[in-house]
Computed example of a mutant assay.
Amino acid sequence: MDIAEFISGVDRTGTKQPTEAALKAVETSIGCRLPDDYRRFLLACAGGYYQGSAEFNWPEGHWAGAVQEVLGLRRDVCSLVRTRKTPQWPTVDELLWIMSDHGGNPICMTIDEMHFGKIWFIDHEVARYDESWTLTEAMSDQWGYVLPLAPTFADFMAGLYEQAEAA
């Protein structure tokens, strides 16, 4: 699915066009400049709920989920900043929650130097709620809380597809 097609499926009712100033404010708050492909997306799409079928697969090819919530430069429940300040599920600073799937699982981008710009799925059902954890622990095979989806935001978007209707 191309980015323009995806954006056309996001219900952005009541949102204003994102600005470069708002984007820079988010980048200042997280301490880094975001990847160019994701910056372009944020300036084109304020975020909202996806109104169609935007399915995604695991890197091995089998079905992983469907995008439901798209976070952006806005001030309501679909806000990147609000979700970062008060996440629904446990997370770490190296992860930027950018979308959620149909089950509320976060789709995140790593903003640390080692994994910068990669896209990850967080399985909130195996989260550790009572103790702190590191990104390395969460990515380990022993835990499997943070799972790889795509090497870049553009690759993740290119892999989205609309589920064909059953006949």
Rank of each mutant, 00 (worst) to 15 (best):
Ser29Tyr: 00
Pro87Leu: 05
Gln163Ile: 13
Val26Ser: 10
Arg39Cys: 05
Cys78Met: 03
Ile3Asp: 04
Asp141Met: 03
Ala166Asp: 13
Ser132Gln: 11
Val10Trp: 02
Pro90Leu: 11
Phe41Glu: 09
Leu149Lys: 06
Ala54Gly: 10
Ser79Trp: 00
Phe56Asn: 06
Ala158Phe: 11
Glu162Val: 10
Trp120Glu: 00
Cys108His: 02
Thr152Phe: 01
Gly48Ile: 10
Ile107Asn: 02
Thr86His: 10
Met139Trp: 04
Asn105Val: 01
Arg40Cys: 04
Pro151Asn: 13
Trp58Asp: 05
Ala166Phe: 13
Glu162Lys: 13
Asp11Ala: 08
His115Gln: 01
Thr110Met: 02
Gly144Asp: 12
Arg12Cys: 08
Asp76His: 02
Ile98Val: 15
Gly117Asn: 09
Ala167Leu: 15
Glu60Gly: 10
Gly72Thr: 04
Ala22Trp: 03
Glu55Lys: 02
Val126Gln: 11
Met139Arg: 12
Pro59Tyr: 05
Lys16Phe: 03
Lys24Arg: 14
Arg12Tyr: 04
Thr134Trp: 05
Pro106Asn: 05
Gln68Phe: 01
Met109Gly: 01
Arg40Gln: 07
Asp93Cys: 11
Ser100Trp: 07
Tyr161Ala: 10
Gln88Gly: 03
His102Phe: 00
Glu20Lys: 10
Ala64Asp: 08
Ile3Gly: 03
Ser79Asp: 02
Glu94Phe: 14
Trp120Ile: 03
Ala46Ser: 14
Ile30Leu: 06
Asn105Cys: 05
Leu160His: 11
Ile107Cys: 03
Ser53Cys: 09
Leu95Ile: 07
Ser8Ala: 10
Gln142Ala: 15
Ser29Gly: 04
Gly104Val: 07
Glu69Leu: 12
Pro151Ser: 06
Gly61Leu: 04
Glu162Ser: 13
Gly47Gln: 13
Leu147Ile: 05
Ile122Lys: 10
Ser140Leu: 07
Asn57Ala: 15
Tyr145Lys: 00
Gly117Cys: 10
Ala66Leu: 14
Val10Ala: 00
Gln88Glu: 04
Thr28Pro: 00
Leu80Glu: 06
Asn105Arg: 06
Val67Leu: 08
Glu94Lys: 14
Asp141Cys: 03
Arg128His: 08
Val67Ala: 00
Gly9Phe: 04
Pro106Glu: 03
Asp123Trp: 07
Met99Val: 10
Tyr129Val: 00
Gly104Met: 08
Pro90Asp: 09
Ala164Met: 12
Pro106Asp: 00
Pro87Cys: 01
Val92Ala: 04
Met99Gln: 13
Trp97Phe: 09
Pro35Ser: 12
His62Asp: 13
Ser132Trp: 11
Glu165Arg: 14
Ile119Gln: 13
Leu23Gln: 07
Asp123Gln: 01
Ala64Lys: 15
Glu125Tyr: 00
Glu125Trp: 05
His62Trp: 08
Ser100Tyr: 11
Ala54Thr: 07
Gly104Glu: 04
Thr15Ile: 05
Ala138Ile: 09
Cys32Arg: 12
Ala154Met: 05
Met139Pro: 06
Ser100Gln: 14
Pro90Ile: 09
Asp141Leu: 04
Val81Ala: 15
Thr152Cys: 04
Asp155Met: 08
Leu149Gly: 10
Gln17His: 03
